[in-house]
């Protein structure tokens, strides 16, 4: 009995020990983040961010970005190279091909090499093959109904209930290779408790006032945005073209109101970065974290309504 008590006492003493681990990220890490736009250039609309991680609590935001890095963009297919320059204004910052010297071509392989505080960080990506994306394969769009490719008022309207049927998504390919695609639904409306859900679940028709902080959080994401990412495969359509057709995507529009709707075909690095847990490990970056991807994207704008008013 005494021995048992002794063992118990020892265990209780052991119990006083701190049963947690120490810090995991003991150093800040270099981060590469960006996607090469197929058919375009690394311009102010598509810069490559080179920076570092900062402490989540008490870190200085200005330390996130490294202005002094030496960064090269190389076309591995054509053995060509250009040095990128740092650019910053009120809304955009990052490294760009300031003279548009290197076009990003479908199907070719590119590499970023960067020297950051003496550390060499690099990543490679192969740009997806050429595609054609449309949200009006049936020709139902008019000036007031359908999608627009610019965010100009008044936006055309789409009835939520007929969106899938009237404006299915079609993507045409030159081959039958599997591909990665993201739908991004971004509600352009400001938060309001008058916003109405397009689908009522468990009787909930409107967001509540305590959800306002979740509408547009500092750290991104939030309830105004949905992202659907998956890997797909094209099939031969009736015109003998490799195609992807989707007539059930409208449920991503969670609210009635104005939307940015982006369809993006992306490479494996970008796909893994966005969908895998701890995606920053899988984005193809060596010597650092983040991702170097490549993509072809088209952005649409529309106003999701219950019934057409015009």
């Amino acid at each position: 009995m005494k021995k048992l008590l002794s063992i118990l006492i020892i265990m209780v003493l052991l119990a006083g020990c701190d049963l947690t681990s120490g810090k995991r990220w003991t150093e800040h890490r270099v981060v590469i983040a960006g996607s090469l736009p197929a058919g375009g250039y690394l311009d102010t609309g598509n810069p490559i961010r080179i920076g570092k991680t900062i402490s989540a609590d008490g870190g200085n935001v200005s330390d996130l970005f490294d202005f002094d890095a030496v960064v090269y963009l190389k076309n591995m297919t054509r053995a060509d190279s250009v040095q990128l320059a740092f650019y910053a204004d009120n809304s955009v910052f990052g490294f760009i091909d300031s003279n548009n010297e290197m076009k990003i071509r479908f199907g070719e392989t590119y590499r970023i090499d960067a020297i950051v505080d003496g550390n060499h960080v690099w990543a490679e990506t192969t740009v997806p093959d050429s595609v054609f994306i449309t949200t009006d394969p049936l020709g139902n769009a008019t000036g007031t109904r359908g999608y627009s490719t610019s965010n100009t008022e008044p936006l055309p309207q789409i009835e939520f209930d007929t969106c899938n049927e009237q404006f299915p998504v079609e993507v045409l390919f030159t081959n039958n290779k599997n591909f990665n695609m993201r739908y991004r639904y971004y509600c352009l409306e400001d938060f309001s408790t008058d916003l109405e859900y397009t689908t009522v679940v468990l009787g909930i028709e409107h967001p509540t006032s305590d959800q306002e902080d979740d509408w547009n959080p500092d750290f991104g994401g939030g309830m105004r945005e949905n992202n659907w990412i998956a890997r797909y495969q094209p099939i031969l359509n009736q015109n003998n073209r490799w195609s992807f057709n989707d007539d059930y995507y409208a449920s991503g529009f969670s609210f009635y109101g104005k939307y940015l709707f982006e369809i993006k075909i992306m490479d494996d690095n970008y796909y893994k970065y966005l969908s895998y847990p701890e995606g920053y490990r899988f984005g193809g970056v060596n010597g650092g974290l983040g991702y170097l991807g490549s993509d072809y994207a088209v952005t649409f704008y529309t106003n999701i309504v219950k019934q057409y008013s015009r």
């Binding site: 947690t20 120490g22 570092k52 991680t53 900062i54 500092d218 974290l289």
Partner: peptide, 22 residues
């Protein structure tokens, strides 16, 4: 979360070990 970075669209956390806290 222990570290954070920005990828141009969003901030992302780097998380600690699985048992950093209780």
């Amino acid at each position: 979360p222990e570290e954070v970075y920005f990828d141009g669209e969003q901030f992302h956390y780097l998380y600690s070990y699985a048992d950093r806290d209780r």
